[in-house]
């Protein structure tokens, strides 16, 4: 039986807590587990790219810490903690539909629907935004736009693409707002919330999370 989005959100929050409670060898094992989970859920190039970007940021973080402090262990532990925390989010997004996460945030965490909807809307309009940016770039290229030269020239040239893109995004957001009105969103009428009931597997999983967190706290503070 699959876990609900609520359990996965709680697990992500628990892993964030564990990153500060559990010792480094356990964290390294946890990170390995997360990576395996990520690639088994989403064995795609995008997973490798996301992981590589996180690794780059973790490396930068370790480098900065080494620059200002001599404590090598603390620097690497910081990087490991960051990797463990952020990879847990990747796992959550790889195994859960954004709609289910939104629904769980509204139902269980009492997040207002208007805010939760922003998540779905952002994801819905990413392909449209990419298509718009390609169309704008093509159109401006036909008018002689060229992204070459020194960095300042390139930044200034970018304005020729950014300006129409922003204006188009504003028009889209206006239509979106109108469309939401037409669909009765955020109105005063009663709105149906489809519930995600927790199953036995969820309760068992949440219990396991609680036990590990308690164990970690005892290890850390005892």
């Amino acid at each position: 039986m699959q876990l609900t989005a609520f359990s996965k959100i709680v697990a992500t929050m628990a892993v964030t807590l564990w990153a500060f409670l559990l010792p480094a060898p356990v964290l390294a094992g946890l990170l390995l587990l997360e990576v395996l989970m990520l690639f088994s859920a989403k064995p795609e190039r995008s997973s490798a790219l996301a992981l590589a970007s996180l690794l780059l940021f973790a490396g930068l973080m370790v480098g900065l810490q080494l620059l200002f402090s001599d404590d090598v262990v603390t620097a690497f532990l910081g990087g490991l903690r960051m990797m463990v925390m952020t990879t847990s989010f990747l796992c959550m997004f790889a195994t859960t539909r954004i709609q289910d996460i939104t629904q769980a945030l509204v139902e269980k965490f009492r997040l207002p629907r208007e805010y939760a909807f922003m998540l779905t809307a952002a994801l819905r309009f990413i392909p449209d935004f990419l298509a718009d940016s390609k169309a704008t770039l093509d159109a401006q290229s036909c008018r002689g736009y060229s992204n070459s030269g020194n960095p300042i020239r390139r930044c200034l040239a970018c304005l020729a693409v950014v300006k129409p893109l922003v204006l188009r995004a504003i028009v889209r957001s206006e239509t979106l707002a109108l469309s939401l009105e037409l669909k009765g969103f955020g109105g005063q009428a009663h709105q149906t919330l489809v519930l995600q009931p927790l199953h036995v597997a969820d309760y068992a999983f949440l219990l396991l999370l609680t036990l590990v967190t308690a164990g970690g706290a005892v290890l850390r503070f005892a």
Partner: peptide
């Protein structure tokens, strides 16, 4: 609307239709 692409607010076909219906309390 004339810009019907922007009028679609959900991620899948069924969610798009259910969104309006649930907003009306069905």
């Amino acid at each position: 609307l004339d810009d019907y692409e922007s009028q679609l607010v959900s991620l899948t076909v069924e969610e798009e239709i259910l969104f309006g219906l649930y907003n009306r309390g069905l």
